[in-house]
């Protein structure tokens, strides 16, 4: 059953989240260069999260002529995107590390395309708002 498999994978993830040292007991240690590459990917996602969060604060602080509601919606959307990115970065790092230790394929993910679509939609929305002149 795919569903039970997913549930089991989620439970394993959560166990690792709350018992961080446990990951070293699983499988065998991979070539350290692969682990470092995984770490850099994690850091790149974390930077993406910081960029989204900083963008959220910037929208609220540097676009005072934007309508209050519109501004809050954009800010919250960017902040939520940043939080999602941060959570996903650590979850993906753990799953990749475990896959490497067990010699399995790396986990497939549709997060990058979802994020890309989200950021694109946000940009289009901002363009529309600016064109319609929804300012105070």
């Amino acid at each position: 059953m795919i569903f039970t498999d997913r549930l089991r994978a989620l439970a394993a993830d959560l166990r690792l989240w709350f018992a961080p040292a446990r990951i070293r007991n699983e499988g065998s240690t991979p070539d350290y260069r692969f682990s470092l590459a995984n770490e850099r990917t994690f850091l790149a996602w974390l930077r993406t999260a910081f960029a989204l969060i900083g963008g959220g604060f910037a929208v609220d602080q540097f676009l005072p002529s934007l309508h209050q509601t519109v501004r809050t919606v954009f800010t919250v959307a960017l902040l939520a995107g940043g939080a999602l990115c941060a959570l996903r970065s650590v979850s993906h790092w753990v799953r990749c590390e475990r896959a490497m230790r067990h010699g399995e394929d790396l986990p497939a993910t549709r997060f990058p395309s979802l994020l890309g679509a989200g950021v694109g939609l946000l940009a289009v929305a901002i363009a529309v708002v600016v064109l319609l002149g929804w300012s105070r």
């Binding site: 690792l16 989240w17 961080p20 040292a21 990951i23 070293r24 240690t29 350290y32 682990s35 470092l36 770490e39 994690f42 974390l46 999260a49 910081f50 969060i53 902040l79 939520a80 940043g82 939080a83 941060a86 959570l87 970065s89 650590v90 790092w93 753990v94 590390e97």
Partner: peptide
């Protein structure tokens, strides 16, 4: 070098979430 610990990963993520 030793692999990054999950504690480090969780700590940095927690800092990010505090900002949010």
């Amino acid at each position: 070098p030793r692999t990054m610990t999950a504690r480090t990963a969780l700590l940095t993520t927690a800092c990010t979430l505090i900002l949010v």
